[in-house]
Design a binder for these strands. Structure first.
Ligand SMILES: [Mn+2]
Ligand SMILES: [Mn+2]
Ligand SMILES: [Zn+2]
Ligand SMILES: [Zn+2]
Lengths: 152, 152
DNA sequence: TCCTAAATAGTAATGATTACCAAGTAGGAA
DNA sequence: TTCCTACTTGGTAATCATTACTATTTAGGA
C-alpha cells in the first residue's frame, strides 16, 4: 500500500483536475481511480473490478475499461505492462522506473537518482518532439527465482 | 532499409543458432526472420504477412504468428510497441533505444552513448535478478507534428 | 425539485491472437 | 534412393481481452 498522504494528494488533485476538465466525478470513477492510486503493484482491469465488487455489486466491467481509458486520456494514469499481457495501470505519473519480471509479469517501481536526472537525448529531436522518457529493467523477480533458480 | 552487411550477419547468426537449437530452418521461417531483420521500422504481423505474399502465396497468418513467437522465445527478436496496439517486432537484440510517437505509433531506433553506457541500477537487485535495461522516449513524430502542430 | 446531457449496466460485437488438425515436408536410417 | 517419423504448415475455428451498443439511471446545475 502507498503512503496515506500520497493517496490523499492524488485524490485531491484528481478531484480538482476532473472538475477543471468538466468530467463528472461519479462514485464509480472515484472508486476506480482510488484503487489504482492506492496500489503499488500496477493492477489490471479484472483485479480492479474484483476489488470493487463488495462496494459496487453492479459495477460493470465495461465501466472499468471505459473509466481507465478516460483516466489515461486525461493523464491521470498510464497503461503499463509487457506486450502479450493484459492492460495494467499506474497512477504515478511522475518520472519513475519499472522492474518487470519476465516470468510472472510482476512490475515494481524503483527509484534511481541517475536515471531520474537523465536528460532526454538530443538525437530524438531529429525524429520529433520528445515528451517523456521511461526506463524499464527486465529480469526475474525473487519469488520466481525461488521457485526455479536454474532455468535461465 | 538496414545496411546489407548487418543483414548478412543477422541471417548467418540465425542459421547457426537455429541449428544449434535443433530448430528446422524452413523457407517460411527464414523468410519471416529476414523481413524483420531487414526492416528499420519494427514491422507488425499483418505487414510481414503482406510483404511475403508475393513469394509465398499460401503463407498462413498463423504461421507468421507462430514463427514470431518462436523467434521471440529463442531470443532472435523482441516484441515491441505501445500497449493497446498490435504486436511489432525488432530483430535488433543489442541494447538500443526507441523513440515512439504517441499519435501514430511510429517507432524509431536511436543511439545515445550515455544511455548505452548505463549500468543497471543496484536497487533492482533487491527485487530480483535484472537482465536487461531499455529506454523509451515518448513524443510526437515530425510527420504528426506537420499534420497538426498545435494539439498537445 | 426538475431537467438534460452524460454516465452506467448489461450484453453483444469486434478483432487480435491462439488452438486445432489434416496434409505436407525435412532430414535421418536403411 | 526409399521409407519413416516427428516436425511444420495452411486453413480455419475458437478464444479472450477489449470495445461498442442501448435502454436506463444519475450528476449537477437552474
Ligand atoms: Mn509505476
Ligand atoms: Mn529497435
Ligand atoms: Zn516473477
Ligand atoms: Zn507520428
Amino acid at each position: 500500500m502507498i503512503a496515506k498522504q500520497v493517496l490523499e494528494e492524488r485524490l485531491e488533485l484528481f478531484l480538482r483536475k476532473a472538475r477543471e476538465a468538466n468530467i463528472r466525478v461519479t462514485p464509480q470513477r472515484l472508486a476506480i481511480y482510488r484503487v489504482v492510486a492506492a496500489s503499488e503493484d500496477h493492477p489490471g482491469v479484472e483485479e480492479i473490478h474484483k476489488k470493487l465488487h463488495r462496494n459496487f455489486p453492479t459495477l460493470s466491467l465495461d465501466t472499468v475499461y471505459r473509466t481507465l481509458r478516460l483516466l489515461e486520456d486525461l493523464g491521470f494514469v498510464n497503461a503499463v505492462g509487457p506486450r502479450r499481457e493484459t492492460l495494467r495501470y499506474d497512477a504515478n505519473t511522475k518520472r519513475h522506473h519499472h522492474f518487470t519480471c519476465l516470468r510472472c509479469g510482476l512490475i515494481r517501481d524503483f527509484e534511481d537518482a541517475r536515471l531520474s536526472a537523465l536528460k532526454i537525448p538530443a538525437q530524438t529531436r531529429v525524429l520529433g518532439q520528445p515528451q517523456d522518457l521511461r526506463v524499464e529493467v527486465l529480469g526475474v523477480c525473487n519469488a520466481c527465482l525461488k521457485k526455479n533458480p536454474k532455468k535461465k
